[in-house]
């Protein structure tokens, strides 16, 4: 029997002013899964994360998280729900005025009444899980990009959430840090029995660690499947994306009037 479904996205649409960003997305994610959402820049991946976390309201359709429809919750209920979610921002978004230790302890201090000694143990455990127990006294500005993201990861698992969303976790990392983060995502998901949603355009790294992939293009799901299916896919869009080809269904040229008209060439020259 497959594990229970944690997130259900049903016919989700979102428009910014009148410009549609997402047009009828359907997804489902189970516990223990690492799911990748891929797509070109500006295809609405981050918007999808914001919809799942309830930061913005969908134009139509809904997101169900652990049986609750996210955008129908009031403020307090939404904040309660968010304690079950973690989010890793693109560059970590560590609180620059707090030390590494205080960053990880932040949520525990805000949301629980745990004694300081227990918070200390928990924080060191979380930091140990990302291999940075020794760095707990540093300030965020003393960390490298990869380390900052690992600390942010430790911070987002502070209250053992059911879901972690990663917004471009691989951007701007060297190959070593990149695979460290990738493996951490997989390991923590398995160890904590949570669900991970990875928004990325780093195809090769994410295909190594994920269970399922959704491709989003022009606001709809262009393709989906397991990493194996995706690698072997012959669908032109997936093929272009996975292999990083310059031209294909996603055109190299931004839509424009014809070249001739733009350069104001006379018909006689054409």
């Amino acid at each position: 029997m497959p594990p229970e479904v944690l997130i259900e996205v049903n016919d989700l649409s979102f428009s910014y002013d009148t410009r549609p960003i997402l047009k009828g997305i359907d997804m489902s994610m189970r516990r223990g899964q690492v799911v990748a959402i891929m797509g070109g820049s500006g295809s609405g991946k981050t918007t999808l994360l914001r919809l799942i976390s309830g930061a913005i309201q969908p134009t139509s359709g809904h997101v169900k998280f652990a049986g609750e429809v996210v955008h129908e919750l009031n403020r307090d209920a939404l904040f309660r729900l968010r304690r079950k979610m973690g989010m890793l921002f693109q560059f970590g978004a560590l609180f620059t005025d707090l030390s590494v230790f205080d960053n990880v302890a932040f949520q525990m201090r805000e949301h629980t009444n745990l004694p300081e000694s227990m918070i200390r143990d928990l924080v060191l455990m979380k930091l140990h899980a990302v291999g940075l127990r020794g760095a707990h006294q540093l300030m965020p500005n003393a960390l490298s990009g990869g380390m900052a993201r690992r600390v942010a990861l430790a911070r987002s698992i502070a209250l053992d959430p059911m879901l972690i969303m990663y917004d471009e976790p691989f951007t701007g990392l060297d190959p070593i840090s990149l695979s460290v983060i990738g493996n951490l995502i997989r390991r923590l998901t398995d160890a904590l029995g949570m669900t991970s949603i990875v928004v990325t355009h780093d195809v090769q790294e994410s295909l190594k660690i994920v269970d399922y992939v959704y491709f989003i293009a022009d606001g709809v799901i262009a393709a989906q499947g397991t990493p194996k299916e995706v690698r072997e896919s012959v669908a032109p869009f997936v093929h272009q994306f996975v292999h990083g080809e310059e031209d294909g269904p996603v055109p190299f040229h931004y839509p424009a009037q014809t070249y001739q008209e733009d350069l104001k060439l006379e018909d006689t020259f054409a």
């Binding site: 976390s53 904040f79 968010r82 693109q90 560059f91 978004a93 609180f95 620059t96 932040f106 949301h111």
Partner: peptide, 25 residues
């Protein structure tokens, strides 16, 4: 500058995601 930078580096958004209201905190 401090609040603006916290916003620019998504620290305020991160706080909201941790169910902590950035205006109050």
């Amino acid at each position: 500058a401090e609040i603006g930078l916290m916003k620019a580096t998504e620290q305020l958004a991160a706080m909201g995601m941790m169910a902590v209201d950035p205006v109050a905190r």
